[in-house]
Amino acid sequence: MIEINNLTLGFSAIGRMYDDINKVFPDTPLVFRDLSLTIEPGHVYGLIGRNGAGKTTLMNCMCGLLGTRKVRKTISIDGHEVNVDNPTITVKLFHVPDSIPSLHVTARAYASTLNKLYPNFSIDCYYDCMEQFQMNQDKFFDEMSLGQKKMTFLSLAFAADTPYIILDEPTNGLDISARRVFRKLVASKMTDRKAIIISTHHINEISNLLDHILILDKNRIVFDHSVAETDCRLSFVESDNDADLDNAIYSMSSAYGKRIILPNTTGNDSEIDYELLFEAVLEDYQSIENVFANNN
């Protein structure tokens, strides 16, 4: 389990990190304020948020790549404080960043190094993933395109078989068939001992892979519910009339009429309209949260 308890983080105008709300001017912008989040194995989490909401920063903090001593103290992985210098922690997670450094190393050589670092690393799984992506093993990272670096790192992530896999915009740079391979890999490598966290701006492309939705906005996680729970609580309908409904929680004009979110009172579970849910949460997360809080 990854636990984040009241994470507060900001950057001053000169780029200095600060982690204490009482030590800065009240109007200094914050990235996170008292952000709390729990990641449990056995689920695929989709992390969405506006540009600049802090998705990458949050992922970097989870991996211990960013943050002050106090920030690291608010984040624990299976009960241990996150710390990049602690090998027992680093082998528990694999991070695929959005920008991958252009090292002068071949994919094959890099994989054999990681094979020694990660206890469950499967070189066969790595070769299999690379083959599915149709990647050349002997290419150097500094000769690869963004998509090729992504595919190599994704293969390494699935081969490393860590309990936590953190994927920052994993489909960025991937072509259409590579995106399909990616979706198949997530579906096949998922186990009840593993959590996969995926950040994306293209939610519809990966929505079927998720079973938990996280929305980051206003310095905290404003939506944190499983897909099953969302199905039970909310109905997503489209109406041919753009009149407002009394019980609509949120609505948006569409070509057909109106896309509407209602409380699910019928028990007929409808397909989640992720775009509509995202806009609704950004506009007024409290009214959505009230539907989840109602015990009926």
């Binding site: 079927n208 199905d231 109406s239 041919d240 009149a243 057909y256 007929n268 579970d269 409808s270 397909e271």
Partner: peptide, 13 residues
Amino acid sequence: MIFKEKLSIYLQI
């Protein structure tokens, strides 16, 4: 007024 509603993914499957 006509409402269209798609089935949830698990029901579609």
